[in-house]
């Protein structure tokens, strides 16, 4: 199944074929609504526990407000639910602690994650927040793969990392921006010292 055909739907965008199984409604922090099948939700430990605790009936799902996921935007959540729908019913892998982890990135996942680094990091964050083990595995593997055969300078470019010098400069700038009076006080103190004064007051 292609990424485009994954059965996650923005409510505003399309009509959902009515199936007997239950579809839950979720809302992103930018008010995008999604319908996700019960089976797909099982890929997320967090959401699965949430819907179990809520104990919604099919009427509740339709009549009550969509379940808000306040930390994730619509663009990211759409990717998350597309992934869950595609992998619904699959076993959730167990981490045996070995390094490097052996994880293959399926074609569907590779296409789904063919996105810019910013969105990829948001996807990883969402997979971690929603506790979707295999999505976290494949997305982290994708980020890790970017490191292969790179020098430290190349890695800085790939991961948008500052060098130590840039980091220092940014910290100094941030400090000054936070407290502009501190710099003025320091300059005044230096000036008084030059004039021979012992005390600041």
């Amino acid at each position: 199944m292609s990424v485009e055909n994954a059965p996650v739907v923005d409510v505003d965008e399309a009509a959902i074929p009515v199936e007997k199984k239950m579809y839950y409604r979720f809302e992103s922090n930018d008010k995008k609504e999604f319908r996700v099948s019960e089976l797909a939700i099982q890929q997320s430990e967090t959401l699965n526990r949430l819907v179990e605790a809520m104990g919604y009936t099919s009427e509740d799902v339709e009549n009550k407000p969509a379940i808000a996921i306040e930390n994730i935007d619509g663009k990211t959540l759409k990717l998350v639910f597309q992934w869950c729908e595609h992998h619904k019913g699959e076993a959730i892998p167990v981490d045996d602690g070995s390094v490097p982890k052996i994880v293959e990135i399926p074609e569907f996942d590779a296409k789904l994650m063919d996105i810019d680094n910013g969105l990829l990091f948001k996807l990883i964050w969402a997979a971690d927040y929603l506790n979707i083990v295999q999505l976290l595995n494949v997305s982290c593997k994708k980020v890790a793969n970017m490191a292969q055969g790179k020098t430290p300078a190349q890695l800085r470019r790939v991961y948008l990392l500052p060098s130590d010098e840039e980091d220092e400069a940014a910290k100094r700038a941030a400090q000054e921006a936070q407290d502009p009076r501190a710099r003025e006080v320091e300059e005044e103190f230096e000036e008084r010292k030059r004039q021979g004064g012992n005390s600041f007051f």
């Binding site: 990091f121 982290c140 980020v143 991961y159």
Partner: peptide, 18 residues
């Protein structure tokens, strides 16, 4: 746009695992 350094430590550890 989030960067690698803005990832929580547990996610960085996950990535490091790969």
């Amino acid at each position: 746009m989030p960067t690698l350094l803005e990832m929580p430590p547990e996610i960085l550890t996950e990535i490091a695992g790969f």
